[in-house]
Design a protein around this nucleic acid. Sequence first.
DNA 1: TAATAATCGTTATGCACCATATCAAATATC
DNA 2: GATATTTGATATGGTGCATAACGATTATTA
Lengths: 172, 172
Amino acid sequence: MTVSKTASDAVRSSRALRREPVDPAGDDSMLQLGELSGLLGYSLKRAQLKVFEDFLRCVAPLQLTPAQFSVLLLLDKNPGRNQTEIANTLGILRPNFVAMLDALESRDLCARMRSTNDRRSHILVLTDRGRAVLARAKKLVANKHEARLIEVLGPANHAALLEMLAKLAQEF
Amino acid sequence: MTVSKTASDAVRSSRALRREPVDPAGDDSMLQLGELSGLLGYSLKRAQLKVFEDFLRCVAPLQLTPAQFSVLLLLDKNPGRNQTEIANTLGILRPNFVAMLDALESRDLCARMRSTNDRRSHILVLTDRGRAVLARAKKLVANKHEARLIEVLGPANHAALLEMLAKLAQEF
DNA sequence: TAATAATCGTTATGCACCATATCAAATATC
DNA sequence: GATATTTGATATGGTGCATAACGATTATTA
């Protein structure tokens, strides 16, 4: 994510919102997916794209991408951490985290403060505006995004799905 | 995917195989994920990366990426189709499908044949070598990749997971 | 039938994401 | 005090994804 980019770019593209496989009675007939439907990775990727699209839609008023939202969440829950710690926790490489922070900082959502203990590192803090935006984002995510997921899957399935995905992300 | 690229590049990177979030007792202490653990999209993306990594490992002898494997699968199940039809079914944009096909064709896994009905389109066919590679890939995927997934999740959970992801990919 | 529109594969291009090497400043280690 | 390590940053390149536009071919329609 480059500095000049904002979340609007992620929502902007009209094509991005209909990226799914196409066969709207336009082509000859439905193609056979075959073993593809049984490939977990295939369905995982497809589902992930859809869920991210919905996230972007739901949180569009705040112009936050999933990655940016996760950074704000982490800064709120873990005050006093530096860039390396936050980036590592999210699986973001330090070089790529710089531009991400630049974008957030330029919008006054967070700030880098030079640590007094270790003057190499930057302590990351949420600004007041950052806290406010995060609070609004949390509500949008819970009431629109996750609510829709739970509605489609059912509460029990939603919980089971979360558990299985967490297990995959950890033990796999 | 550029023409000069092969699946080996996807496996090559050592960092790509340890992209997960880091906190191996190296940093101060474990950071609090907070609401992040409840975010379905977050777990989805994490799980998807892990599953794709495992796919690449398992099918590394054949140098096939998940996307390439899905193309071969689709060509096998749907003979006589052109580039647009195959690309659309997989959610790949036609411009981006060109280089993908170039790579597969340069490895003699598939071929483009000018259609006699419509001389604009290219009918895609698996070569003998393509069929052979696909057969070996199917075995690797089933016996190594999916087998491990089923082992970690349990057969019932694996099936339930597939069903939920398919529902998300469709109805969401 | 002739003119126009639509489709197919393709090229060019740009942006987002991910990964590595490298640097200066600051700190840690010896 | 000399050397090594860490931190944030820059530069760079690969890869995926998206749009615009083009020539060749086919479909539409005036």
